[in-house]
């Protein structure tokens, strides 16, 4: 079936399967920053913004994106570069598989929460798993990013 959406600020017209997840449709259309880590909405690597709201794209039916705006890291280059620099400076980035989903979630958080403290950050990002680090340096990097963004 055909859907029209706004992908990273540009109109897109896609043919999607009625039963497929947004994640699959995105990857099939070359949006490869969106990663499949679990298929059960449990890991956060597939996080995208749907009309500005962070959702696990593996659990959203692709046709639901019809008429809506989808944002991935490809559409957040500045935020990705700045958060990326903070992650790198803290040595918090390891394999990077979780990173694009994390960037999207952090961007959503920075828009939604005023001045999140460490507990609020950890709570907001609880759906973004990382298996390589122990979150400590990642949190440090995110705090640095939020500070710099201010």
């Amino acid at each position: 079936m055909n859907i029209s959406l706004e992908l990273n600020g540009r109109p897109a017209n896609w043919d999607v399967e009625p039963g497929e997840a947004l994640l699959e449709a995105l990857r099939r259309h070359g949006v490869l920053s969106v990663k499949r880590g679990c298929d059960t909405a449990s890991c956060g690597t597939c996080t995208v913004l749907l009309d500005g709201v962070p959702v696990p794209s593996c659990a959203v039916p692709a046709p639901r994106a019809d008429g809506r705006a989808v944002t991935t890291v490809e559409g957040l280059p500045d935020e990705a570069a700045r958060l990326g620099a903070c992650l790198a400076a803290e040595g918090a980035d390891q394999c990077g598989f979780c990173a694009p989903g994390l960037v999207v979630a952090v961007v959503a958080m920075s828009r939604e929460l005023e001045h999140p403290d460490e507990a609020a950050i950890n709570h907001y990002l609880a759906g973004n798993l990382c298996r390589c680090g122990g979150y400590v340096s990642q949190t440090r990097a995110i705090r640095r990013y939020l500070q710099e963004a201010r």
Partner: peptide
């Protein structure tokens, strides 16, 4: 020195780099 990882930015930007990509 704690230099940044050389692939850090590319990965955070989601540059296709993994096998399935």
């Amino acid at each position: 020195r704690s230099l940044p990882k050389i692939d850090a930015l590319g990965l955070v930007r989601g540059t296709p780099a993994f096998t399935d990509d």
